[in-house]
Simulated assay, not measured.
Amino acid sequence: MTVRFFFCFIFAGFAALTGACDQQAGSGSLKSSDGVWEMRYQDAVGQSYLNILELRQDGSYATHMQDGTPSDGGSYTISNNIIHFESAYDPRLSRDIAFTRPNASTLEMAIPGLLPVSAEWRRSELKPLFETATVNGREIPLDLPELVASALATQAIPWREDAWPTWIFVAESPIGRAKLTLTFYSRSSGDMLRLDLSKYAMRSFENDGSRFFQEPLPAQFVDLTDIMEKAKNDGVAGALNTAEMRVFGTAGPAWMLATNGPVGVTYSAQTGARLDGDVTGYIAQYESDWDKLGEIWREAMRKYEKSPDKDDPFTQEPYKSTYQKECEARIDADWVAGQCRVR
């Protein structure tokens, strides 16, 4: 496997690797080759990689690459042991690849180059971390309540026994794949565990949680796909760009959706009801802070106006503002109490 991949990298390069090592076919029929295929290997320094190819019954394909090779997707057809991949994202990745099927669980793909080498893929038993549905052209993760419960049990609690989930964030990759971030908080340590998930990969990070979300999410909540359906029925325009669920100060647990339409929208994660207004409390806090600052300066001005000493150095000619000088030069205006007033 290592030798095959080495030749694949040398002769085909990154683009050809995606075209060859990511593209696979069956023994001449779509039905015999659809499913999930994997290639596992180690590089020269012992780093392990897992690349996944999905060949779907509808004639579409998707690659999920962990070795730096671009992931891809599009449509494929098979004819006379040649599989044609038509990339939906990069025309340079569209190509015809010869293949053989040594047995039902193995697929060998010819690699373009000077030597007759091939890349071996095997049928995979690996289950994806999450399944997806397509809504308005966007991949949306399915069954998020179950996924969060599973991540809590298998990842967060072994990390910290008192961990609880605090944030769900859904976005998309440059080629339209769903990306998912989950965070968990430990009250005893003040630490945060972050899980970045794609369909077939996970990365975990531990950080200081003191400045991040700490309120626990409910054990049961409305799934994102149901929220998207409600948004569609409410006439929310545009495809989903990002979605986040957390506990908001004035609304409790809520889904906040940002679309490529003119406005976003927020829904209760417990009831599914649409929430209007500022659920974050940011606007109210912002206005309150400005009111407090304004009052401080108004009080300072009141004290200044009551002062009997009006020998203000700023009133001297060399220090007058350009605005004041321009006002005093006008024949239709007067400079009064720091303002230019038109007669």
Rank of each mutant, 00 (worst) to 15 (best):
P174F: 01
M256Q: 12
E299W: 04
K31G: 08
R194M: 11
G190H: 02
Q316W: 06
E299P: 02
E244G: 00
T242I: 13
L275S: 07
A300N: 13
T242F: 06
Q155I: 01
V45N: 09
W167F: 09
D309Q: 01
I283N: 14
T106L: 12
G68A: 03
F213L: 02
Y185I: 07
A273E: 10
E299H: 09
D278M: 00
G249Q: 06
G277I: 01
P308Y: 07
A62E: 15
M65T: 12
P313E: 06
A98P: 03
G68E: 07
L142V: 00
A110H: 12
D226R: 14
R95H: 13
D196N: 11
S79N: 13
S321V: 03
D223L: 03
I227R: 00
T183L: 10
A156R: 09
E172Y: 08
G73W: 01
L107P: 05
T166C: 08
F9V: 15
E326V: 03
H84F: 07
L144I: 11
G238D: 12
F9H: 13
R123V: 04
A44I: 15
K179L: 10
V170E: 04
Q47Y: 08
V135Y: 11
V263R: 14
L224K: 01
T280C: 12
M228Q: 01
P262Y: 14
A163W: 07
S321A: 01
I111H: 03
L115H: 03
L129W: 10
D72W: 08
F7M: 12
T77Q: 08
A337C: 08
N80M: 08
D312F: 09
M1E: 13
Q57Y: 06
P218F: 00
K325F: 04
A237M: 12
V263S: 12
S307A: 05
P262F: 10
I97T: 06
A237T: 15
Y267M: 11
M109G: 15
I168G: 02
W167P: 02
V263F: 11
P313Q: 13
D72C: 14
G272W: 15
F85T: 02
G73C: 04
T18E: 13
L180E: 10
W290Y: 04
N81F: 08
N103Y: 07
T134D: 10
L126R: 15
S29A: 00
V45F: 02
A300P: 01
A149Y: 04
L126A: 09
Y61R: 00
M65I: 05
G68P: 06
P70K: 10
A12Q: 02
D34A: 15
A258N: 14
T63H: 07
I331G: 09
G264L: 04
Y323Q: 09
S204I: 11
G35I: 05
R203D: 03
I111C: 03
K179D: 13
V45D: 08
Q220V: 11
G190D: 00
T77A: 02
F213D: 05
